[in-house]
């Protein structure tokens, strides 16, 4: 019994230590933003590898999700003769929920895991230690640009996901199933509120971007520098990011859309 308690205590202390290290790293990366102003090229490079290279998966996923929403929405709404609300339904689902959430989940799987693996391997091959010994702070030089790139990329990718999702919904609803096109777009225009829907969606994707990129970078930076350690860290990035996004989505939705 005492052994079990001791084990639980040790686990709790380790978890607290990791949490502390993660917050110290977050502060260091925020301080590193000043450094990026002097060398914007570092940010541009990371925007490409973190953001631009994720566009394809986001675009394809957004299009298909929108098409499925259009199809399912039509089947349900047509039972009540409400097909004209299809545009509103597709857009509201995407802008409020599916855009930010699915983008964050896909981002964690594509860019987050790549960030963890890259930083973990840099640690395992002593590149981060090498930078420290060259009097270059890796938290500023390597981590901060990646963090800022993630923060910028996720809201933009979420916007792209939503736009392509709406296009997918319109292709199915308006193009294939014969929903009135004017009603499709008018319903969307009248029903979507810029502040309540669009801005809240952007805030969500900003929060998700911060959390996913922070988790990915921390897992890489804090991993055991072996092939097994990097592999475990990469898995943890995807699992922790996904759970954090889904949990935070509930909290944010309750705060934003609750009465």
């Amino acid at each position: 019994m005492i052994e079990k308690l001791r084990g639980l205590g040790a686990w709790g202390l380790q978890a607290l230590l990791r949490l502390g290290r993660a917050h110290v790293l977050l502060l260091a990366m925020l301080r590193g933003f000043v450094d990026i102003l002097r060398r914007p090229r570092l940010l541009v490079e990371q925007l490409f590898s973190v953001g631009v290279l994720t566009i394809l998966i986001i675009s394809v996923a957004g299009l298909f999700v929108g098409m499925v929403l259009g199809l399912q929405g039509y089947y349900i709404l047509s039972r009540f003769g409400g097909e004209t609300a299809l545009g509103l339904m597709v857009a509201a689902s995407l802008v409020r929920e599916l855009g930010p959430v699915l983008t964050a989940l896909l981002f964690a799987g594509r860019a987050g895991s790549a960030l963890t693996a890259e930083i973990g391997l840099m640690k395992a091959t002593e590149q981060l230690s090498g930078l420290e010994m060259m009097a270059v702070n890796p938290q500023y030089r390597v981590l901060a640009p990646r963090f800022l790139a993630g923060l910028i990329s996720v809201p933009l990718l979420a916007a792209m996901f939503s736009v392509l999702g709406v296009a997918g919904g319109w292709m199915v609803g308006g193009g294939m199933l014969g929903v009135d096109q004017a009603a499709f777009w008018n319903g969307m225009q009248e029903g979507i509120d810029f502040e309540d829907d669009v801005i809240n969606g952007v805030i969500k994707s900003l929060v998700f971007g911060l959390v996913c990129t922070w988790i990915a970078i921390f897992q890489g930076y804090d991993c055991v520098p072996t092939s097994e350690g990097v592999s475990r860290a990469t898995t943890r990035t995807v699992v922790h990011s996904s759970l954090a996004v889904l949990g935070l989505d509930f909290v944010l939705t309750a705060l934003m859309f609750g009465e």
Partner: peptide
């Protein structure tokens, strides 16, 4: 640390840079 150099067992070269850029790195920094 600018007065110290260290040669790591693995070399610790930055893998996304050429040989030239690796050697130029501390000078540029």
């Amino acid at each position: 640390r600018m007065r110290m150099g260290m040669l790591f067992q693995s070399g610790a070269l930055l893998t996304d840079m050429s040989v030239f850029d690796n050697v130029a790195f501390p000078l540029r920094e």
